[in-house]
Each structure stands twice: as structure tokens, then as C-alpha cells.
Simulated scan of single mutants.
Amino acid sequence: MANSAAPALGLRDGDADELDRLLRSTSTPAGLVRRARIVTLAAAGVANSRISEVVGTSVPTVLKWRSRYLHDGLDGLLDAQRSGRPRHLDHAGVISATLKPPPKKYGVTHWSSRLLASHLGIGNATVARAWREYGVQPWRSGTFKFSTDPELVAKVTDVVGLYLAPPENAIVLCVDEKSQIQALDRTAPMLPMQPGQIERRTHDYKRHGTTTLFAALEIATGQVTATVKPRHRHQEFLSFLRQIDRTYGDQELHLVMDNYATHKKSAVTEWIAAHPNIHVHFTPTSGSWLNLVEVWFGIIDRQAIRRGVFTSVKDLNAKIRAFINGWNDRKHPFVWTKPVEEILKKAQPKTN
């Protein structure tokens, strides 16, 4: 009889541990868990009728999975390939359609999963799965800009080399200006942060003018020399260079700057030429991100300007100076790590 006469099911080497793993895993499909329990109980010598009661199935089903295990091992417990209508369009076909622009009749710039599904005559869940599988995100867009500077390689090599191996007994300063900083005042007082509630401010504001921040970042220490000016002409920039000269005296200085027009005015270049201790290194066109002071500008913007409330330009300037004083008390070095080869690989357009 099938009830109790069946001998204990002999397991293959290593299958006991795998069956235990299947039974313990929360991600094992319910059907596979049931079959694993049947085989585990059968291996323990439990009668087929008792297994059917414990697992909640019929004795013929118990006999079926005993037999499947005897012939095929654990592979015999898996679902057989089901027959039926094949998938109408495989994932590669979905991606191929996604990478083509939508027909003009739709009047859209990119596909949504529902629009593409309707276009292909399939379910939008299929489209979504294909996009996840291939890492395609039609709803997202970014920007890029390739440098057209004919001296790109030389300038990148020069600036990065300066960061990675600065000359002995010399100071490397990254110099630039952050212009058009707005003194924005809110129309109502800020609501401070509270437990369970973030800081809040009104969506509208009052404009009280703008200021320009000139800054020189000493990369070895993080020290910032700075000033604020109402404008950012070459006259203001030259005045800032004189401030740098007074701050550092006769020390050898290497200034990293971008190609902004005010940095190349004749009055500026003549002044630099008259100071042999000052050496200028220009970043390539469309490569101002190589200037580390841009990183520091991001820091002051996030920590002091973007969420600040300023009742006047004078107030804005005072708070910028306060941040700089606090920064110089807690400053840290700025370390460049990306090699020239990796930068050039991304900065230059690919050619076929």
C-alpha cells in the first residue's frame, strides 16, 4: 500500500542541506517549499498518507514528487517548462523600440512605458521589466559638454600635475570669482526645524541686489583668501590679485584660473608679468571644473548662501565673511585623486 509500506527516501549527497535551505528561505516559491517538505518527510521515513495530511495534498501527489526526486534529484522538483503562446516581443525588441524616437504622431520627446506598450501592443509591465533589465531610463536626461580647446591635453596635464606634484617651496592657489550672488530676503520669518518637522521658508522672496565673491583656495591647507566686490570687472580682479600678493608676500605662487575674459585683460597680464614669483596655469576651455575653488564655492553655497536670509547686500557680504572666517578655523586640504588619462578619456568626444 502507498500509505505506510513505502521505504524511506534516500537523499543524494548534499541534498539534505539544500532542502533545509529551501525550507528556511523566505524567497522560495510556495510550490517548491511544498515539494521540498514532501521529500524531506519521505526521507525521514514518514508514511505517504501522513505526508499528504501534513503538507495538505493528496497521496498521488506525494508519490509523484517522490518519483520525480528518485529520477532527477532536486532538479525534478522544479516546474517543467510550460507550453503556451510565446512572449510577443522579447526584451531586446522592447529596448530596440525604446532607443528609436517616438513617431511624430505622438507629439512627445521620449517614450513612457504605457505609450510604448500601447505602440507595441504589449503590457506596460513588460516594458518596465525590459527597461530595468537593460538599465534604460527614457524619463531621465542629463547634460554634457566637450572641450574644444586645442591645448586641452597640455592644460589638463599641467593643472593636474600641479595638484598631484606641486613645486617645492611653492604655494598652489585656485582662483576664481562667484558672481551675481543674490541677497534674497523672505517675505515672512523662517519657521525653524523641530522634531518631526524640517525648516521651512516662504516660496516668495525680496531681492536686495547682488555681490561678487573673489576667492583663492590654498589646496595644501584649505585656507581661503577672499573679498567681496559689487562688480566683477578686470579692475576688481586685479585688485584681488594685489590682495593675494600682499597676503603671501614674495613666496612663489602658482595660480590656477579659467579663461574668463577679465583674467586676460592687458592690465592683468602686465601686472602678473611684473611679478616673477607668480605663475598662472589656465584650465582648458569648458574645463573650469578642474579648478578646485569651484568645489569650495559649492560648499559655501550649500552651507551659507542657498538657505540664507539677507536683508541687504551689506548683510550678505557680512555673512559671507563670517563663513570664510569660520571656514579658515576648520579648514582642510583639498586632495586631487583623478589621473590625467581618466580625465581626458571623459573630456574628449569618442570617435568611431
Results as ranks from 00 to 15, higher is better:
4 S>G: 15
7 P>C: 08
13 D>T: 05
22 L>I: 02
43 A>F: 03
53 E>Y: 04
61 T>K: 07
65 W>G: 03
66 R>C: 02
80 A>E: 09
80 A>M: 07
90 D>R: 04
92 A>I: 01
108 V>Q: 11
108 V>M: 13
111 W>N: 12
120 L>P: 00
132 R>A: 10
133 E>L: 05
135 G>Y: 02
137 Q>R: 13
138 P>A: 11
158 D>Y: 00
164 L>F: 03
170 A>Q: 03
170 A>S: 15
172 V>S: 12
175 V>L: 11
183 A>I: 05
188 A>K: 03
196 G>K: 11
205 Y>I: 04
209 G>N: 06
213 L>T: 07
225 T>M: 05
230 P>Y: 02
230 P>T: 06
233 R>C: 11
242 R>G: 13
252 E>G: 07
253 L>W: 01
260 Y>N: 11
264 K>S: 11
265 K>W: 06
269 T>N: 11
278 I>M: 13
281 H>Y: 05
283 T>P: 00
287 G>H: 07
287 G>S: 14
290 L>W: 03
293 V>Q: 10
305 I>R: 02
308 G>S: 07
311 T>D: 10
315 D>M: 05
317 N>S: 09
319 K>P: 05
321 R>N: 08
323 F>N: 14
324 I>Q: 14
327 W>Q: 14
328 N>Y: 00
337 T>R: 15
340 V>E: 13
341 E>G: 00
347 A>I: 06
348 Q>S: 15
